[in-house]
Design a protein around this nucleic acid. Sequence first.
DNA 1: AAATTATGTTACAATTGTATTACAATCGTT
DNA 2: AACGATTGTAATACAATTGTAACATAATTT
Lengths: 217, 217
Amino acid sequence: MKGTVFVLEDDVAISGLIKVSLDMNDISSKTFSTVKDFLYALVSETPDVALLDIMLPDGSGLDVLKYVKEKHPNVCCIMLSALGKEEDKVHGLSLGADDYVSKPFSVLELTARINAALRRNRALNKKLSVGDLEINLDTMEVFLSGNRLELNRKEFELLKYFMKNAGRVLSREELLTEIWGYEQGETRTLDNHVSRLRKLGVHNLETVFGIGYKFTV
Amino acid sequence: MKGTVFVLEDDVAISGLIKVSLDMNDISSKTFSTVKDFLYALVSETPDVALLDIMLPDGSGLDVLKYVKEKHPNVCCIMLSALGKEEDKVHGLSLGADDYVSKPFSVLELTARINAALRRNRALNKKLSVGDLEINLDTMEVFLSGNRLELNRKEFELLKYFMKNAGRVLSREELLTEIWGYEQGETRTLDNHVSRLRKLGVHNLETVFGIGYKFTV
DNA sequence: AAATTATGTTACAATTGTATTACAATCGTT
DNA sequence: AACGATTGTAATACAATTGTAACATAATTT
């Protein structure tokens, strides 16, 4: 999952289309059709990117933009507007919008811009550390008590998932679907990767017999 | 060529005059008569100096100023305004304008100020260096431990992107969209360019199997 | 304790991804 | 239009990863 996008758009046909495209691109999204719902959702969760329509039934996306930029400056805002409303564009940009897309837009283009925004956002070094392990999501570096470990992609993904869910018991199915995308079927692949991680020195990987594994703190 | 100037001015008589004068002074310029055109041009090219009228048919030069200063802080902005509008002047300077010229102005004086701005701007380092590599964004020169490398445009763009994002793992997807504008599709072009850079001596380009590349420090 | 089931580990093969060369298409000049 | 430079494609060779099979070992159930 590459990030989270909140979509504020009252035309369900449009927001639906966007959602489908984001799903296909492995980007998690939530759609809202009123300013009220949107702001309410912001209380409990902060997305990486906000996609804001300007004309909404209960307010203006420009006001939302202003609010978001004030309260959550790390959220990247992309405005959507009706064709020709160039004054909105200037206004939006001056209020701190990061990008701008005019309707009608190509879903492909929009997705590309969202991807770019997510990338830009990620430029802030994001680290994750649990116990004596520390991983850097940007550089894909892993340190165990300060020493660099060389992991390949699957090993890294798996370790990342373990660390993000440290303490929880993770079933084999969960891991297989999250990391491998397997829906079902029997495989020993997971055991294998766990074994490799252990051999590299990751000691806090407990096996939960009959269920799966647990990354302990 | 001493630099590039973008002129945003809706009176064609004035912008024409400015352009002629700049041409004579070996300064490259592009003129725009609407905010829309101006912002659009900014997407693909960043000038050294922006000359901004304030009253425009589709917006205010002050909004443009704010936007430019935010997104391209190295661009030097000179405001143009009708005589007597002192409040604009104050407002503009508070938004980060570098200089201010009142209409009607002497073309000679304006040109002098632009020259001064270009000189000042040149002083700002437009260099980027990481490890033993140094690139000059103006002249497109590249030095590897002091020795000049000859790169062509794509090689330069790619290296620049790598250096700007040194340390981060850059996916093939990201590089292809950022440098090539590809939205999807499979290509070996990227591998090729990386290979060329390496052959030229750029040694700190790591391949991250299954994902992309990383420019290490 | 034997039988059954689940996991650990190793080695290897299949798969997938990359490097590099040579060449073709394209672009920008003249 | 023709030239040279640049940039993308195809093809080949090569390398890394990752899933599978096989067998060993451990845990659970009977």
